[in-house]
Design a protein around this nucleic acid. Sequence first.
DNA 1: CGTGCGATGCAAGTTACGTCA
DNA 2: GTTGACGTAACTTGCATCGCA
Length: 351
Amino acid sequence: MELALSLGDSSKPFSFLDKTPKLSGKDLGFCMAVGGGRSSRSPEKEEEPTPGRDGGERRGSSDPPVQLDLLPFSPVPRRQTSQLRFPWLTDNNEASPYIRVIFTVGTEPGSGGLDVNRLPVLAGADDAEDGAALSSPNSAVSSFPMDFGIGNGSSRGKRDMEAETERASSRASDDDENGLTRKKLRLSKEQSAFLEESFKEHNTLNPKQKLALAKQLNLRPRQVEVWFQNRRARTKLKQTEVDCEYLKRCCETLTEENRRLQKELQELRALKTSQPFYMQLPATTLTMCPSCERVATTTTTSATTKTVNTGNHGTANGVALPLNRPKLHPFSALKPAQGSQTQAQAHQAAS
DNA sequence: CGTGCGATGCAAGTTACGTCA
DNA sequence: GTTGACGTAACTTGCATCGCA
C-alpha cells in the first residue's frame, strides 16, 4: 500500500482543503509517500509506519521508515523544560513570543497581536518542529504555565512521570503564580470549522492526518488529537440522547398499548361471560402500524388470517402492533375467512 | 510458540476555563 | 460586578492492541 499525502498543492489529504483556500494557502510544501505493512487495529487507520510521540518511527515496518520533516516530535528534555518554565519571567525587556502570547490571551484571533491558538513564530524556526517542541503538548501557547515542552509523553510511564512532575511544579508555581494552572483557549471559528469538516470525512485520525491537520491549522498535534477525542465523545453523547428519546417514545407507546389491551381483555372476558356464542365466530382485528399509524383489517379464523392493509409501507422494525382493536360486534365478524396471508406479509406486500 | 514489556490510541470520566444571560 | 449554567479544551485513568525481545 502506498499513501500519498501532501499539503500545499493539489493533492491534499482532505478534500475539503479545497474549500478553505485561506487556510490552506500556506505553502507548507509537505509531501510524503509511505509504504504500509502491518495490519491495522482499526480499519480507518492507515497501513503505515507512524511516528511515535518520541519522534521515532513507530512499530517497525519492513518498509524503510519515512522521513518526515513535518512536526516530528522531539521531546524537549526536562532540563530544557525547566529552563522554559516561566519564560515571561525574564530580565530581558524585549518581549519574548511567550510574553506576547500572554498579552493576547482572550483576544479574538486576527484582531491584532498574536493568535493565542497559533504556534509562536520563533525567529530562526522555519519549521513547526521548534514551535511544536516548545509548545507541545502543554505549551505556553495554550496551557501555560503548567505545561512546557513535554513533547507528548511517549508512554504511560513517561506520561505519568511527567504529569507528576508537572503537577509538582505546577503546585509550586501555583504558590507563586496565584493559581494560574492551565489556560483553556478556544479555537477560532475557522479552526473549528476546518476540524469539523475533517471530522465529517473521518472521525478518527491517523498520525499523518493529525500532523497534517495540526500543520494546516497551526495547532499542536495534541490539540488536534484532543479535539477529535472530544468530538467523538460529543457525537456519542448526542446519539445516546437520540436513542434515549426514541426508547422513551417506544416505552410510552407500549405502555399505552398495554393499557388498551388490558381493557379489551376485560371487555372480552365480560362478553364471553354474557354471550359465549359469539366468541366462536372469527374475530376481526385492526392492526395499526406504529410508524405510519395506518390500519390493517384482519379477519382471523382458527387456521388462517386474511389482512386488508390500508397502509403503504412496511412496518417499523418489522413489527405491527395490534392497536385499537374494535369492540367485537356479533355480526361484524361474519365475513368468511380467506387466504392464509399473514399480517406481516400483507403489510410488506402493500409496501 | 507463549510471555512480558513498552508504546500507542481511544473511551470514559473529570477538571477547569471562557462565554453568556 | 457577580453568579450560575453551559460548552468545550485539556487532562487523567483504564483498557485494548501491537510489535519486539
